[in-house]
Design a protein around this nucleic acid. Sequence first.
DNA 1: ATGCATGAGCC
DNA 2: GCTCATGCATA
Length: 347
Amino acid sequence: MMSMNSKQPFSMHPILHEPKYTPLHSSSEAIRRACLPTPSLQGNIFAGFDETLLQRAEALAAVDIVAQKSHPFKPDATYHTMTSMTSMTCTPTSSSAHLHHPSVLTSHHHPGHHQPAQGLEGDLLDHLTPGISLGGMTGSDVCSTASHTAHAAHMSAINHMQHHHHSQSMNMHPHGLGSHASLGGGGDAEPDPRELESFAERFKQRRIKLGVTQADVGAALANLKIPGVGCLSQSTICRFESLTLSHNNMVALKPILEAWLEEAERVQREKMAKPEIFNGADKKRKRTSIAAPEKRSLEAYFAVQPRPSSEKIAAIAEKLDLKKNVVRVWFCNQRQKQKRMKFSATH
DNA sequence: ATGCATGAGCC
DNA sequence: GCTCATGCATA
């Protein structure tokens, strides 16, 4: 049910692997699957294994799982256990410690679009994402359009750096709760799971307060112009907020989202301070609605004279107690409408 | 919010 | 073939 990404193997934290428990693929696989929400498959999974191996794998799984739960440094497990893990004991995502380079985020952006369901937050977004207003392609410039190739290249570079620290196989973990500066001079910081968790929570609350959707955030990231950081999908923002990303991914994303949040709130403060500046351009116009009776009158007039003179319009406006411009525009729209109707009728 | 897919780098 | 970050599509 939730975060268990079938693909994301939840790798055990290196530190948890004691030498004698050689993390064989089979065993970790077993553990992983055991955590999958598809118990029905479990039986088959080991069908070919010999009893002993199976038992051993299960035993190991139990041990490791317990270890995870209680191990204060276990990053992945932490999120869920601390938050709202329902039934799973294992974590959805990975974990081995990699160097987290912010660039890890560089998105992939397929030529896709962002969640259509989510609306854009006009003002704020416009300021944070200047491009979006331009044909709604902001994101695209930076992300979508570039799509695979370019992006892929980018990602590669990033991942490259990440993996360079043979961290995958080695055992250095990111979260040095405090003193664990595992990385020799690494500098990367304090991947304190709790901090991440609370940040994610605060992030969501503040985002909502700003009236910005997850998709908006993802798209707006590109406007931060942080080197190596493009936009992200709604999915990713959602996963960040729900802590369903890998620890490393969370760590990498945090500073970026933090930057966005600050910028967004700064812009909002600005708007509060001097709203005038933001008015003209993006102020929503009010749409007049003409009541039925008036509309009927207008239609009657239109039937007689689709192109009334200025004087005639003024007279009609006065009679119906509408603004002259409203009446004028109504006639314009009516003529257009009629044209469209004619067109669709013939074609 | 999340199941499934893709693609890069690694082994 | 595997891990991982990320996205698309959809419930």
